[in-house]
Design a protein around this nucleic acid. Sequence first.
DNA 1: AGAGTCTTCCAAAGCGCTTTGGCTTTTCCG
DNA 2: CGGAAAAGCCAAAGCGCTTTGGAAGACTCT
Lengths: 340, 340
Amino acid sequence: MNLKQLAQMLALSQTTVSRALNGYPEVNEETRRRVMDAAKRHGYRPNPSARRLATGKSGMIGYVLPTGATVDIDPHFVEFLSGLGDYARSHELDLVLSPADADDQETTYRRIVANRQVDAVYISSPRPQDSRVSLVSTLGIPFLVHGRSEGFDFDYPYLDIDNEGAFHEAARLLVQLGHRRLALINGDDRETFAIHRERGVRRALAASGLTLGERHVCSVVMTEENGYRATRRLLEESDAPTAIACSSLIMALGVVRAVRDLGLTIPGDVSLIAHDDVFPWLKPENFSVPLSTTRSSIRLAGARVAERLAARISGLEEGARGEVWPVDLVVRGSVAGAPA
Amino acid sequence: MNLKQLAQMLALSQTTVSRALNGYPEVNEETRRRVMDAAKRHGYRPNPSARRLATGKSGMIGYVLPTGATVDIDPHFVEFLSGLGDYARSHELDLVLSPADADDQETTYRRIVANRQVDAVYISSPRPQDSRVSLVSTLGIPFLVHGRSEGFDFDYPYLDIDNEGAFHEAARLLVQLGHRRLALINGDDRETFAIHRERGVRRALAASGLTLGERHVCSVVMTEENGYRATRRLLEESDAPTAIACSSLIMALGVVRAVRDLGLTIPGDVSLIAHDDVFPWLKPENFSVPLSTTRSSIRLAGARVAERLAARISGLEEGARGEVWPVDLVVRGSVAGAPA
DNA sequence: AGAGTCTTCCAAAGCGCTTTGGCTTTTCCG
DNA sequence: CGGAAAAGCCAAAGCGCTTTGGAAGACTCT
């Protein structure tokens, strides 16, 4: 059942039927009702391909997925996706993932924009002066950055959590508990979130005249194994830290394992605070010693990103609105006063 | 730059240019070269919306993503996606995720098929007599099942791993080591993979005249917490098992924690074998006691699914071909002879 | 009553591609 | 050399929708 048939059936023109269906004003209310009614009764659904060709709108949001033999998709992604899906589901928005060589995403961005394959895109895990952000903003497609970039001479819309504030609070608590030597086991320090977290820790330390030793900050891909290695390295040195801030729960698994392997205890010998993105399958309260965390649901962020993208597509949201979510500091058993 | 302009520029008809580009035989080789050349030089890319409208092909593969407030996307999904992306990237295939209410996916399947939004779909985590499989096969769109369904009077194409064989081997090893009371901490037993794994364990036990006690098999969502709870329950009973087979590494984390909490050791008091889907961020060899596993890369499976879907789309693959991958049994420190 | 203004609808022109059916020209072969 | 077959190309008709530019009729106002 296509528009033509429906129009014929109603003895109306395609124009009128189309307008009635799309809520244009220049059609009699009764006619509209008749049309709506018939459409529903016959299960008419406009062909999206045709509509897309005519309007250039696709009803999808896009994401360029960096891939490659050496590239692993972050497990956080799936939680983010859940959130995106939560919103998208109720709005018949689809998500198209365009896999791209991680080293050449530009081609793919250009392709999906030129082809009008999607109405909007989002960008995740941005870095300072991230080329994707400048690219996409010149390409002129609605977009939203999940996280923040930096160092541009223009503004852009984003949704981020207060990483600096979170780690500032975490570090401040540790300092208040008497810790003098903190360490930070961070994610890839080319990404903005990691930079912000480090900044937060440094700021908290500085406030008490302390510093973050050069060798007390690690920047690694966030795997259990890397958490383990970093911790071993940290704790086997002479000026071993007495407290660790850690950028992910998965790494924290490794931290806990390393501490135990060294015959040390949490929080007796070392206090630990990690960032928790709220996974349903791994909870900080269930660690052998319940883990203190800075908590922010990445799933909720996903839903919000979808919501804002939808708003931008329909013109309800405009401009370079930045949105920063506060982060909860949840104190559990993994922190204690510094050992004597 | 569109077809019309390109044709004009070459003083050829759109027909000829289109045919030259799409490899039809009825065009002179030299003409074809000229066309190809000009197309490349001017960066001509056929508009996918138009092509789609004309042909009904979209160049995308689809996945209906079950969502809902109580639905969590499995973290395995992201690894599978990595694999899918690995293949899709080099073939300019995009993946479209259509979020759907987990309790009503049919509507969404019908929509994406009716709308010809995608050229093929895949189905994951199937259950016996999974309604999605029968639906999709009547809808007549190319598809592939990742995993297996059962109990149909028709065949369908799938890619699965030998879950039964894997857990058979694992259980057999444990029995050979003298274990008489095994337990299985399994995933959702409405899903086929879980059923197959249980079957494998039972078969191995039966071969030695043993059985899997009713209360020695748990079926739970695969989270760390559930692994922990299941293990506590198992080990606190009078006829506690001396060996555990576990369906996921994440649950195994909980198993390990529970064993430790109870003051027991692996493998001294209890042997453990888990299934490893090969995550880059959590490796069995890095468990406090290196974990024996049945191993099968879900990422490779993703790539293969993409490959086969592409083949089905282009008509290179047909029929209900089932493909079952063998699973490696990797023995590490977490298994030992049964305690006396 | 006549001019102007709404209201309501329509025919037709795209959107950019593929494909059908046909028309020339060339090639082949007895 | 003549006729058939093959090769190479084209005009035009879709695909199913949106949107432009009217047009006809109803209504208002002076």
